[in-house]
Simulated assay, not measured.
Amino acid sequence: MSKLLFAAFNEGSSLSMSGHHEAAISAFDKVLAVDPKHFPALTARGSSLARLGRAEEALRCFERAIEVDPSAADPHREAALCQLELGEPEAAAQLMGRATQLNPEPGYREAAAIEVYERGNALLTRGSRRPDKARYRLARYTFELALELSPAYVEAAKALSDVWENLGDTTQRDHYAQLALRLRPAGS
């Protein structure tokens, strides 16, 4: 049976890497039908769902993966990114905090900060109309999380300045603009 699981998982991985996420999900479902606690299939299925924009379903996969292996950092990080997609920045911050406790490497924090920052940008550019105050507030929390993960992240500080500009708080706007200037390396 393990050869069949291995084959189904490899098929799903290949399909996912080639961008065929629906087919990949079906392959991962075959694995999970036999072994509902198959950690790699849970996380890979969640990743495919996330790439399809199905954040709620992806979140459930990552939560199940966390139950299977609470010491793995990546499902916590991926669940946090799903929570950001779902407009739950507090839950995202808790999950991301746990992920960075489990993997305290600076490079991991910086990579997570970039992913969070990209979610904030996507939030502001999604849709055809100008973002409303609610989207700017959510983006604020998202960029704050990115800056918390990587305190020297110039782009996150600049994004926060822009967000505060749109929220009408010039004091905060100026604070983050000054922070961005201080973080910028000399000669830039």
Rank of each mutant, 00 (worst) to 15 (best):
A73D: 03
S18C: 06
P40S: 11
V116M: 01
Y117D: 09
A55V: 00
A72F: 00
S16Y: 03
L95H: 14
E90P: 04
D132Q: 04
F143P: 06
R137P: 09
E56F: 08
R51D: 11
R77V: 00
L84V: 02
D69Q: 10
E90Q: 13
T125Y: 12
R130Q: 11
L124P: 02
A27Q: 01
F28I: 05
A91T: 04
A79L: 05
Y141L: 10
E118H: 14
R130N: 12
A27E: 05
R130W: 08
H21G: 04
A72W: 01
A24Q: 04
E67Q: 05
E63Q: 15
R64G: 03
R137T: 12
H76G: 08
D69H: 07
E90H: 12
S26R: 13
L32I: 04
D74V: 03
F62Y: 15
L49Q: 11
E22C: 10
H76Q: 09
T100A: 01
Y117Q: 09
T142M: 06
L42E: 08
D74N: 12
A112I: 00
V68Y: 02
R54V: 08
R77C: 05
M96Y: 00
R54W: 06
I114N: 13
A122Y: 10
L81G: 02
R60P: 01
R135G: 03
K133T: 12
A139T: 04
D35G: 09
S47C: 09
V68D: 04
F62C: 02
C61G: 07
M96A: 14
E85A: 15
N103A: 11
S18K: 13
M17D: 13
